[in-house]
């Protein structure tokens, strides 16, 4: 499907989610008085938007802040700075009560299907709980009927509503998580590594389910993952994060065919390819991701970048356009 057409048609609609200059610094406390002795710069000025029915892939290595972004936009973690808008409304400062109607529209699916479901609740009650909290389907057996429909929707049998989480496999548990997220008809689902804990054959089932749901219900996803192949498969646009900042932001085809940031290049080159006949020249980056407590000055990537110059060590590069909808934070581009 040509992505540009979809986006043009939706350009008029307000984004489901718009994030500007989002920051989250976790204080490091020490000693008897718990004095703050430093900060973890988990998210350091991140901006993006997601249109209805669109998937934004957020990729990066562990510690780059992608999970913190996902939780902060839902205000499961309070941001240190920046703003979060849901359909144009600023929710950054809203009280818990005022936030509630917006919570209905934004749900989350976690990575670990073992710890994200209450082991003492029946699967049907887990899926029905958001409805209970928001007072939906209280009359008669209405809620049970809705839950049964959700079970069918995600490929589970309604008879399984009475079972407990331990009676399901990992893939089925992730289906329960998705059904729970769907219970309130959200406009946006933040999916934080939803298939990373699953076996490959089961991964495909869950990815297909998520794509079907998007096609049929127009749900937007913020899809957080370290797996570039999965992100390429499911996303329309992709943001690459490194140490709390977005270093490149583009539509899928542009990012994978013409990556501009040296980090994106390195990341793509490092992904192993399941084809033994294809021997590629690998562009290996040296070293580890530096600590987000003391991120390197200037461009965060300069310590591992093969092209780094003096300027990169001093001056932070701004995220600037290099093409249609293609943003890169690099002095050399």
């Amino acid at each position: 499907m040509p992505m540009t057409e979809i986006r043009n048609a939706q350009a008029a609609a307000a984004p489901v989610l718009q994030v500007d200059g989002l920051k989250k610094h976790f204080p490091i406390r020490k000693g008897l008085l718990r004095r703050t002795i430093g900060n973890v710069f988990a998210v350091d000025g991140v901006s993006f938007s997601i249109q209805p029915g669109e998937t934004l892939g957020l990729v990066g290595e562990s510690g780059c802040g992608k999970t913190t972004v996902g939780r902060t936009v839902l205000r499961l973690i309070e941001p240190t700075g920046g703003s979060i808008r849901v359909r144009g409304e600023d929710i950054t400062q809203l009280s818990r009560k005022a936030l509630r109607p917006y919570r209905r529209e934004m749900q989350i699916v976690f990575q670990d299907p073992f710890s994200s479901l209450n082991p003492r609740m029946r699967a049907g009650d887990i899926v029905g709980e958001p409805m209970k909290i928001h007072g939906i389907g209280a009359e008669g057996g209405e809620r049970a009927r809705l839950v049964a429909r959700l079970f069918e929707r995600v490929g589970l049998r309604p008879q399984q509503m009475r079972n407990f989480p331990h009676e399901f496999s990992g893939g089925q548990r992730q289906r329960i998580s998705i059904a729970r997220a769907l219970a309130l008809n959200p406009k946006l689902i933040v999916a934080d590594e939803p298939v990373s804990a699953l076996d490959v054959s089961i991964q495909a089932q869950v990815i297909n389910l998520m794509m079907d749901l998007q096609r049929e219900e127009g749900i937007a996803y913020l899809f957080i993952s370290h797996n570039l192949a999965v992100v390429e498969h499911i996303s329309h646009r992709i943001a690459v994060m490194y140490l709390g900042r977005i270093v490149e932001y583009a539509d899928k085809v542009t990012l994978f065919t013409r990556p501009q940031h040296p980090y994106t290049e390195a990341l793509l080159s490092a992904v192993p390819v399941p084809d033994p006949l294809l021997k590629r020249e690998k562009r290996m980056v040296e070293g580890d991701v530096p600590s987000p407590v003391r991120p390197p000055p200037g461009c965060h990537f300069h310590t591992r970048c093969p092209y780094a110059q003096d300027r990169c060590r001093i001056e932070t590069p701004a995220l600037k356009p290099v093409g249609e909808g293609h943003l890169v934070a690099c002095h050399l581009r």
Binding site: M1, G171, V200, E232, H233, K252
Partner: peptide, 26 residues
């Protein structure tokens, strides 16, 4: 069933973007 880098660019039109599933589980 494994998504491959670049596969979507060449085959998206034919497959409709679906990954082949192995039904059921081990």
């Amino acid at each position: 069933s494994i998504p491959r880098l670049g596969l979507m660019r060449s085959q998206a039109a034919q497959t409709g973007g679906r990954l082949q599933e192995i039904p059921g589980m081990v």
